[in-house]
Design a protein around this nucleic acid. Structure first.
Lengths: 233, 233
DNA sequence: CGAACAAAAAGTCAGACTAATTAATCACAG
DNA sequence: CTGTGATTAATTAGTCTGACTTTTTGTTCG
């Protein structure tokens, strides 16, 4: 899925990035560009471009006479969408989902508060539509349909906040929600209380009630934290 | 300052990244790799590597037969430290600082709450030390010294939260604090109330009082928002 | 209006050469 | 004999060049 066949460069980048984030080539290990190029069957040009991109993500450091060194995890650009995708595809997916969910719990309530102040009428309408869609798909095992509306809902809130840093977390939230749905026991309908909360958030935003929108969204994210046992019940 | 003389690649990347984020080459404009290489006096290899990195930051899109197209701002990887540096160096620095400060106001209180639960004794000691350093430099125009302790303080809190996504915002917060100090009227000592709040946060974290740490940090960030007139006074 | 064709740009490859950095070697003084 | 400093050698990334391929788009012709 993540490997589109669009050119050698992307393919090689994906393979290497995945390998590094997956923990083979642990931090400190050194790779040689030429050897990698040969191993993956590409020219040095292509491999060099891939290494440069990995370097810009702080996954590796390239130094003369020594080679390409894998950097410690703490230095990786963990906000890079590609890095996030690689890590979600690997072994520390659970850990990654927890980190992202905690981030959500900090950001989304504030974003909802801002949305209540800044949302355009169009965005309010869109939000209500999403909430209604969630209600309509909340029963009878229509999990995929529910997911679509859920993702759209949170994306609209983040965009409506008017803050570009928040808006950019849309993909991230989508990733978390999708991950949650696809790793939960299927056939289990979403929590009715959560559905209600979404409807109420949409209403609060439309009414311009920032405090209420923030508080309701906080309840939603608290629920998400509880699902992962990050919070004590 | 951002342009170290470490190789052609880094130089070219910096020049191009700055130019794009500064708004010359507006979104939609198309550049040709060969022409750029010639203009900047480097070989195609080097230019191609730079373009690939810019592409991974979603600043540009490279397509056959058309060229390198500058993408709209909304698609840029705004969490990439390099992109942030470029934008802070450019004309929309004020806008950037506002966005980052709002992000801070969402993240730091939650991070402080987590820190109160997770901080090690060493981190608590470090935090207290930072707070004392802030007190010691809070009068008499020792703004640079104060800034150092302030940055260290917030960095420790973010690290102590135990969440890697929060920890990675340390550089970002440092950038914001430095920007604020250096653009404010010099010779103006920091708000005594803010200094007190930092001391109290350190104390709350040491005591393991998550709610109080969160609330106090929220007051700090609210103050930061007010400074930028994001909040009504 | 559709299909064949031509042009333009990025993508890929191969090879030669450069430069920086580390490691080994060797000479010399203590 | 040993430690230390400078010189040399080896290794790897960095850079450049030129040829060739592939994809996409615009054009032309049926």
């Amino acid at each position: 899925m993540s490997t589109g066949a669009r050119g050698q460069h992307a393919r090689v980048l994906d393979v290497l990035g995945l390998a590094i984030t997956a923990g083979e080539h642990p931090p400190g290990s050194v790779l040689r560009t030429d050897e990698l190029a040969e191993r993956l069957g590409v020219s040095r040009s292509v491999m060099r471009e891939a290494v440069r991109v990995l370097e810009s993500m702080c996954l590796v450091e390239s130094r003369r006479r020594v080679g390409v060194t894998v950097r410690p995890v703490e230095e990786w650009n963990v906000y890079d969408p590609q890095v996030i995708r690689w890590r979600l595809a690997g072994a520390d997916r659970p850990h990654q989902l927890r980190s992202l969910t905690v981030l959500r719990s900090a950001v989304e309530p504030v974003a909802a508060g801002l949305a209540a102040r800044n949302a355009t009428p169009e965005q309010c309408a869109e939000l209500t539509e999403c909430a209604l869609g969630m209600v309509a798909t909340s029963r009878g095992g229509q999990l995929e349909g529910y997911l679509v509306h859920d993702i759209a809902f949170h994306r609209v809130v983040l965009n409506a906040s008017g803050n570009e840093m928040f808006a950019h977390l849309g993909d991230l939230v989508a990733e978390v929600l999708a991950g949650r749905t696809h790793h939960r026991v299927m056939f289990e309908d979403p929590d009715p209380a959560a559905v209600t909360l979404h409807v109420q958030v949409a209403e609060a935003v439309r009414a311009g009630d920032a405090v209420r929108a923030e508080e309701l969204t906080r309840e939603i994210t608290v629920g998400a934290l509880r699902e992962l046992d990050i919070l004590a019940p």
